[in-house]
Amino acid sequence: MIGNWLDIGPVTQIEPGTARTLPVVGGEEIAVFHTMRNEFFAIRNKCPHKQGPLSQGIVHGDVVTCPLHNWNISLRSGKALGEDEGCVPTIPLKVDAGRIYLLRSAVIGGGDEAAVQQATQDKAA
């Protein structure tokens, strides 16, 4: 079981209200967020709008505002909120005994494909 989860270090390495990045060689960079409500999320570090680095946005609640054009992205679902449409892949994350783990297959595969597909369907519907 543990082999499926990638240990990326202690929770304390990300200040609440900020994100840090995790480049993947040959893959897509991941942004790992620590919200002010003490939750952790991982999503691909690219806004669905113009590929802005979401890790650099202002975090409020479980939402990040993209630094380039102020799209609001739900960290929980990866979906753009409000009038905007789009979705960024999420990476399943868990916190155990003070350490952060990401689902290895999603890290390497570039995110939760199911989320992307769901978003595509939602948009079509």
């Binding site: 990326i8 270090g9 990045t21 995790l22 993947v24 060689v25 297959s105 390497i108 595969g109």
Partner: peptide
Amino acid sequence: EKLHQHLAEVRPYPGAKMENA
């Protein structure tokens, strides 16, 4: 300094995607 540094870098071993997918 944390604002500027990556957490780490993931270097998947060859074929990792297929094995884990």
